[in-house]
Amino acid sequence: MKRAHFIVGVAVAAAVLAVTPFLDRYVAYLVTIVAISSIGALGLNLLTGLCGQISFAQAALMGIGAYTAGNLCNAGLGLFAIPLGGLAAATASVVIGLPALRLRGLYFAIATLAAQFILEYLFKILEPLTHGISGLLIRPPTVLGFAIQDDRAYARLAVALLFLVWSGIGVLRATNLGRSFLVVRENEIVARGMGIDVARTKFWAFLLSGFIAGIAGAMSGIASRLANPEAFSFALSVDYVAMIIVGGQGTLTGPLLGAAFVTLLPEAIQRIGELFNTPSILSALREFAFGMLIILFLIFEPLGLMAVVRKLRLRLTASKPGGKSPAATTEAV
């Protein structure tokens, strides 16, 4: 990660953290859900955008994070429940990933699809841990005797976690492992020929992306005080795939744009629906609109919103003398 990007990240995170105490509760809620889905999208992007493995099990992994963190929270572990939720999801991600190591591309995607449905089923039947269809109620975590139960506090926590994950991935991208991810993504045979241990590289991708998914799920469960099967269904997995496609696979900031877009669009549609008194018709349009959107992006801008942002920036800087050359902007931002 370039130092300038990191500084911008710090500034944005600090600014958001500074204004959250003054936010309207609804806006704080929106900040929370965008931050959570950004974390989830960064996790999936690590696996798909950096390492080239498409997964439809993201929602289920988040569910594991949520149920684990929920139970641990209720047991009084406070915020430790969040990284532990991450660890549980990381374990599950490796378990799903290892048998799938021999599968490539579409076959791997289908294996993850199966994992998604199996886990959803387990969420429903493992009543002692999950409370079945009605879901697990999660009590607010306490830190030093103070319960975190305010929408603004959730927003702060989620944004802080997002910042940690975002910088962590920025650093990861510049490590030998991060470079191996990119080679494996481009061509597994070449990666192997170069001497990269492809299985080990994928193992780390599953582990780290699962951990991040678990953190997103844990935060989501804590913020909604509930973990139920419906909240981590296949449809959500599709949403996450949409987020990284719309945002720009493989980039560092694209998943954040995609997450904001995919998360806020239904909110916007609902508000518009309420305005015109036609909420049900519009929410039916939602799935359709998503489908169309993904197809349009895949056809016209496979590199997502991030590519659009880059083009705009190029256009702005190109008119100035001494503006950045295209070479300087192709690095993953």
């Binding site: 030998n176 470079r179 191996s180 990119l182 080679v183 481009e186 061509n187 070449v190 170069m194 001497g195 990269i196 493989g250 192709t330 690095e331 993953a332």
Partner: peptide, 20 residues
């Protein structure tokens, strides 16, 4: 040589070193 998008010259040399 394969196309390796997003990797810089230095990325590739570093990767090479890490594999020896």
């Amino acid at each position: 040589v394969a196309s390796l998008h997003d990797l810089t010259v230095l990325d590739i040399v570093r990767l090479g070193r890490s594999l020896g």
